[in-house]
């Protein structure tokens, strides 16, 4: 078990009712952790549309999680618009 800090933004922050929370988890990767927080809060974005950041840098879903990591799930951003 490790403790990680999960950060939520925008629609995920509204859905969970918190900007961040400490989670005790057996998840080894952000991929496993995302499954956990989806079942906890019922987040709607599919993982394919979400990015992950660990300690304020973008990371891959397979990065091994460490005790105390700050993990931010990044739902689709404002700018991905077809009009230029």
């Amino acid at each position: 078990m490790i403790h990680v800090e999960c950060a939520y933004y925008a629609m995920m922050r509204e859905r969970s009712g918190c900007a961040s929370e400490s989670i005790q988890t057996e998840a080894k990767t952000p991929e496993e952790l995302y499954e956990e927080v989806v079942s906890l809060h019922g987040f709607s974005p599919e993982r394919a549309h979400v990015k992950v950041a660990i300690n304020d840098s973008f990371a891959t879903w397979e990065t091994p999680l460490q005790e105390g990591d700050r993990v931010a799930f990044i739902p689709p951003v404002a700018g991905g618009c077809d009009h230029v």
Partner: peptide, 13 residues
């Protein structure tokens, strides 16, 4: 501006 709109974690409601 193109990269920033794709990549920066900024959301608009």
């Amino acid at each position: 501006i193109d990269e920033l709109k794709e990549r920066l974690p900024i959301w608009k409601k």
